[in-house]
Write a protein that binds this DNA or RNA. Structure first.
Lengths: 317, 317
DNA sequence: GTGAAAGCGCTAACAG
DNA sequence: CTGTTAGCGCTTTCAC
C-alpha cells in the first residue's frame, strides 16, 4: 500500500524540513511565497489531508459531535439527525451516531466510545430509568439532553418540549367533536416526558370534567402503541390521544387497520400524517428548530442551558 | 478542568511505570495479578478510556465507518443507516454520517473529512454525474458504493439492486388490471440506477406491446416526483410506476391528493405504504439484507466485491 | 525565512 | 515481572 502522505513525506519529497511544509499549509506568514506555492501544489497532487488523530492528540479538539438516539427510523429522530448532520457539516464538524434502542447498557457503551474519540459534544435522548445514577460515563463530555431529561443530571444542557398546552388543546378539540370517552397512550413515569404528558392529559380531562380512566402507559415503542391501541379499540373509547412519537405511529397503524372508526390525535408529525386517511390531526413538534438550537448550543459552547420549545396542535381533515 | 486520565497519570498515581498500566489494562500476561487488579480498579474509578487518537496515530485503525447518504429522512436510507449503525456498534465500530444532498462538492468534502479521521471504510450512495472523474478523494479509502454505481470506479465494492424483474412484474400487474397508458417517473441517465430502471420499464412495455411514451426523468427527489406526477395526472395516464425512493414518495403524495384515481406502483417500501389508501403496491427492496451485507464486506475487508440483491413486487389492496 | 526539539497517549521492542 | 526508549503526525517554542 502507498505510504501515508504526511508533512514529513512531502518535506522529504521537496527537500525541505517538515516545519516549512507545516507553515506553508497552515498559511503561516514566514514562508517564502515560492516555497509555499510549491508545497501546496505538491500536497494537492499527493492528496494530502492532515491527520485528525495528530491534531486530537495535541489537544486541538476533534470537531466530532455524538448523537445518541433510540433509533433513526422514526421520522422525528430522522429529521432531527438530518438537520443536525447538515448543520454539523456546515460548521466543519462530523456527526457520530449511536442508536441506543432505549437500552441503558448500550447508551453507556456509546458514551464511552465517544469519550475515546474525544467528542467535543454529545446530543442525546436519554434512555429511561437511569435517574439518579451518577453520570460517571458523562464525565468530560459536554452533553445536551433532548426531549427527555434525566433527574439529578442538571450539569448538562437540555432541549425540552412544552407540549402541555397542545395536549390540552387536543382534548378540547376532541371534546368539541362530542367525545367524552377519550383514551390516552403514553410513556410511563420512568421518563420525564412521560410524566409531564400524562399529567397534561389528566389536567385537560379534569378541565373538561371528564374522567381520565382510559390510560395506557409503558416503555414507548411502536409495538407498545399498536398493542395498546388494539386493546382500546375493543373497549368504549371513542377517541384516542397519543403521547409519544413511536407510540403514535404504532397506535395509528392499529386505528387505520380498524377502519378509522376512532377519532385519533397523534404525536409528532411525520410527513405521511398529512396524506393518510384524509390527514391526521396531531401534536406537531418543531424538529428543525430543536436541531438548529442544538447546533447553536454546541458551537457556542452553551451546553449547560435549558431551552424549551412549544408543541402545537395541527388540525387536519 | 480536571487533567485528562491517561495511562501516565494512572501510573504516577500508583507509583508504577506507564507500561505496567498499559499491560495491565490490555490484559498482557506478564503482570502480577495484584498489580493488574489495582491498576484496573483505579482506572475504573478515574473513568479512564483509552485515547482513540493515540491508537490511530500508532496505525492501529480507527474503527470508524463513514456513511454517505443523500439524506436520512427517506425511510429507505433511514432503515439502512439504522441497521448499519446497530451492526457497527455490535462490531465495535462507530458510524460517521455525512449527508450529501446529492451534491458533488458536499460529497467530496465529506470524503476528505473521512480521510482525515482515517475511516476504515466508507459506504456511500454516490452522487449523480461524477462518472469518469478520477477518484482522487477516494484514495486510501476502502469504499462500498450503494444502490448506484459510478462508471469507471471499479476498484471499489458495490451493493446493487436487481430490480428489472420486479419492475417488469409491476408492468405485467398493471396490464393485468387493464391498463395500457402506463407512465414512468425515474432518475435520469446521470445515474446508473436511473439508466437500468428506465431500460427495464421500456423492455417491460415492449413485451406488453405498449408504447413507453409517458416517461419523466430527472434528478431524483421528492419534489421532482411530486411535480412529475401532478403533471401526468392531468394527462391520459391511467397508471403510474415509479423508479426511485424519493420520487415514489413525492409522486404518491400527489396521487393521494388527487383522490387515488390513478393506479400507483411505488418504489421502496416505507412502512406507511402498508397503511395508506388500503395498501400501496410497490417494488420492495431488502434494506436490512443490504445493510447486513455492507457490514460483512466491511468487517471482512472484502470491499472490492460487487453484490446484487433482488427487488420484489409486493401486491397490496 | 527556515530548522531542530519537545511533547500530546499509546504500545512494540528491548533491557533489566 | 517491570522499566526505558522510540516513534506514530502535528504545532509551538526556541534557535539560527
Amino acid at each position: 500500500m502507498p505510504e501515508r502522505v504526511t508533512i514529513k513525506s512531502i518535506a522529504r519529497d521537496l527537500g525541505v524540513s517538515h516545519m516549512t511544509v507545516s507553515r506553508a499549509l497552515s498559511g503561516h506568514p514566514n514562508v517564502l511565497k515560492e516555497t509555499r506555492d510549491a508545497v501546496r501544489k505538491r500536497a494537492a497532487e499527493l492528496g494530502y489531508v492532515k491527520s485528525a488523530a495528530a491534531m486530537a492528540m495535541r489537544g486541538d479538539g476533534t470537531g466530532i459531535v455524538g448523537l445518541l438516539l433510540p433509533n433513526i427510523i422514526n421520522e422525528f429522530y430522522a429529521r432531527f439527525a438530518n438537520t443536525l448532520a447538515t448543520a454539523c457539516d456546515g460548521a466543519g464538524m462530523q456527526l457520530i451516531i449511536h442508536l441506543t434502542n432505549d437500552d441503558p447498557a448500550t447508551e453507556e457503551a456509546a458514551l464511552d466510545r465517544l469519550r475515546e474519540v474525544q467528542a467535543s459534544s454529545v446530543v442525546m435522548v436519554p434512555v429511561p430509568g437511569r435517574d439518579g445514577r451518577p453520570t460517571a460515563q458523562v464525565a468530560g463530555l459536554r452533553t445536551v439532553q433532548l426531549i427527555r431529561q434525566r433527574a439529578f443530571d442538571d450539569a448538562t444542557g437540555a432541549i425540552l418540549l412544552d407540549d402541555g398546552p397542545a395536549l390540552r388543546a387536543a382534548i378540547a378539540h376532541l371534546v368539541g367533536r362530542g367525545h367524552s370517552r377519550i383514551a390516552y397512550i403514553g410513556a410511563d413515569a420512568a421518563l420525564s416526558s412521560g410524566r409531564s404528558r400524562l399529567s397534561a392529559f389528566e389536567k385537560g380531562m379534569a378541565t373538561a370534567g371528564l374522567p381520565a380512566d382510559l390510560v395506557r402507559t409503558g416503555a414507548p415503542s411502536f409495538d407498545m402503541g399498536r398493542a395498546c391501541a388494539q386493546d382500546l379499540l375493543t373497549g368504549e373509547a371513542t377517541a384516542l390521544l397519543c403521547g409519544g412519537f413511536e407510540i403514535s405511529n404504532g397506535a395509528l397503524s392499529a386505528c387505520l387497520e380498524d377502519g378509522g372508526r376512532i377519532d385519533f390525535v397523534g404525536y409528532g408529525d411525520p410527513s405521511f400524517y398529512a396524506w393518510v386517511d384524509g390527514g391526521v390531526t396531531t401534536v406537531q413538534v418543531p424538529v428543525e428548530a430543536l436541531a438548529h438550537h442544538a447546533v447553536q448550543m454546541i458551537v457556542e459552547g452553551r451546553t449547560t442551558e435549558t431551552a424549551t420549545f412549544a408543541a402545537e396542535l395541527v388540525l387536519r381533515r
